[in-house]
């Protein structure tokens, strides 16, 4: 789960070394907290959150396949 998200985020940002994803397991959900360099925020959120939405939709497709519930949170 984390590897897939990390790979997508790293392909989008200018500073892949500063991509950090932490996994928080809750009872029902797995929360993936994404941290990137300040200047890369726009690259993973996009106009009206369009990029973030696309990332979440891909992660959702994967989660369904793995029978999991995940939430992708972008932390600033």
């Amino acid at each position: 789960m984390k590897e897939l998200l990390e790979m997508i985020i790293k392909a989008l940002v200018d500073n892949p070394d500063e991509v950090n994803i932490s996994v928080v397991e809750e009872e029902l959900n797995t929360i993936l907290e994404v941290r990137v360099a300040d200047e890369d925020m726009g690259r993973i959120i996009g106009k009206r959150g369009k990029i973030a939405k696309a990332i979440r939709s891909l992660m959702k497709a994967y989660a369904i396949k793995e029978n999991k519930r995940i939430l992708v949170e972008i932390v600033d």
Binding site: A11, I55, L58, A61, I64
Partner: peptide, 16 residues
């Protein structure tokens, strides 16, 4: 799986 509901996953793949 890669098409998704009404092509949503496919569109996301294409956009990214």
């Amino acid at each position: 799986m890669i098409i998704g509901r009404r092509g949503e996953t496919l569109d996301s793949l294409q956009f990214l």
